[in-house]
């Protein structure tokens, strides 16, 4: 269940994570997704270690199959996460794209 208040509260956390570079530690391709993600599947989920040492789990977008590799450089970006629910607030979050 989405909450506009929760989305608003998380804005600063999301902003702090944008534009960071890092490397892929591991990845999978989700083919059987949770209900809110059915229209996006299949999609890759990656575990990334940022240069700061912090790790994040997020989707990889704008990628080619060869980018799904150990040590692939990526950069974090803001993207829509899923559909808005009845409150109408679009949930944005962190995803990663390959750095080429």
């Amino acid at each position: 269940m989405q909450s506009p208040v929760k989305i608003w509260r998380n804005q600063k956390n999301i902003a702090n994570l944008v534009g960071k570079t890092g490397k892929i530690l591991s990845w999978t391709i989700v083919r059987v997704p949770p209900g809110d993600f059915t229209d996006q599947a299949p999609y890759p989920v990656v575990l990334v270690e940022l240069e700061s040492g912090k790790r994040v789990t997020c989707q990889l977008v704008d990628y080619e199959e060869s980018n799904l590799a150990f040590g692939q450089s990526v950069v974090t970006i803001i993207r829509r996460v899923t559909h808005p629910d009845s409150d109408g607030v679009i949930p944005y979050g962190i995803k990663a794209k390959p750095l080429v």
Binding site: V30, F37, Q59, G93
Partner: peptide, 8 residues
């Protein structure tokens, strides 16, 4: 974070 990533 894992839920936002659409992870399972």
């Amino acid at each position: 974070e894992e839920r936002s990533a659409g992870a399972t």
